[in-house]
Simulated assay, not measured.
Amino acid sequence: MRMLVVSDNHGWDSILTDLKRRYEENVDVMIHCGDSELLADNPAVEGYTIVRGNCDSEDQYPNDVLESVEDCRVFVTHGHRYNVKMTLMNLSYKAKENSADFVFFGHSHTAGVEKQDGIIYLNPGSISLPRGRSEKTYAIVEVDKLQITVRFFDEKHVEVEDMKATFSR
């Protein structure tokens, strides 16, 4: 299984179109973690599972989504409602409450991935306004029977190799 995860494009619709063109036939799901700043009828967001961020005015986006992708439970949120800039504790309670295998979130614009209590927490960073690193990033998550591999890519689709992470399943 493969999942594309992107967040915080802040109005830059052509990057979402580019990602869709590149990946929609090669991933099982395309996930957007909020702050698209695009309306729900914008063609750039079509095909994405998308949540509402603190900068989104579109009320058609849900705050959170729990989605099953193959045999995995994926919880998606922007993160501002869970105070993710300070701690992952609130988000971890919600993840456990929903029996999530993966938690995808944005808001901080800081790319990173970690595994806690068997749950993968992934922030793909911001595809437009990164913090902590210079690269504008998104992530591809690959899941097989034995392992989970997370790769980060910049807006030109070049892998940020030092960010790659692999976890046992």
Results as ranks from 00 to 15, higher is better:
M1Y: 09
L4Y: 08
V5G: 00
V5H: 01
V6T: 14
S7E: 02
S7A: 15
S7L: 06
D8C: 08
D8W: 08
N9T: 08
H10C: 14
H10Y: 13
G11L: 08
W12R: 11
I15V: 12
T17C: 14
L19T: 11
L19G: 10
K20F: 00
K20E: 10
Y23W: 15
V27G: 02
D28N: 03
G34M: 02
S36M: 05
S36F: 06
S36K: 05
S36R: 03
E37L: 01
E37G: 03
L39M: 11
D41L: 14
D41W: 13
N42I: 13
N42A: 13
P43F: 09
P43N: 10
E46T: 15
G47R: 04
Y48Q: 00
T49P: 01
I50A: 12
V51Q: 07
R52C: 05
R52Y: 03
R52E: 07
G53S: 04
G53M: 02
N54H: 10
C55M: 07
D56V: 01
E58C: 00
D64L: 10
D64A: 08
D64S: 14
V65E: 06
E67P: 01
V69Y: 01
D71E: 14
R73Q: 09
R73M: 08
V74H: 06
F75Y: 03
F75G: 02
V76G: 04
V76H: 04
V76Y: 00
H80I: 04
H80L: 06
R81Q: 05
R81N: 10
Y82R: 11
Y82V: 14
Y82D: 05
N83R: 15
V84E: 09
K85W: 13
T87V: 09
L88G: 10
L91S: 07
Y93M: 13
A95I: 07
A95N: 04
A95P: 03
K96L: 12
K96V: 03
N98Y: 01
S99H: 10
A100T: 01
F102M: 09
V103D: 05
F104P: 05
F104I: 12
F105Q: 00
F105G: 00
G106W: 14
G106P: 10
H107F: 15
H109I: 05
T110P: 03
A111Y: 08
A111Q: 07
G112A: 11
G112N: 09
E114Q: 01
D117K: 09
D117L: 11
I119L: 08
I120W: 01
I120E: 00
I120P: 02
I120R: 06
Y121D: 07
N123P: 13
N123R: 12
N123I: 00
P124W: 04
G125V: 11
I127V: 04
I127A: 11
L129E: 03
E135Y: 14
Y138N: 14
A139I: 08
V141H: 09
V141Y: 06
V143D: 07
D144E: 13
D144A: 02
K145C: 04
I148L: 12
I148T: 07
T149I: 15
V150S: 00
F152G: 01
F153K: 04
F153G: 08
D154I: 01
E155D: 14
E155L: 11
K156T: 06
H157L: 05
E159H: 13
E159T: 05
E161W: 02
E161P: 08
M163P: 04
M163Y: 12
K164C: 06
K164I: 07
A165T: 02
A165R: 02
T166E: 00
F167A: 05
F167N: 02
S168G: 12
R169G: 11
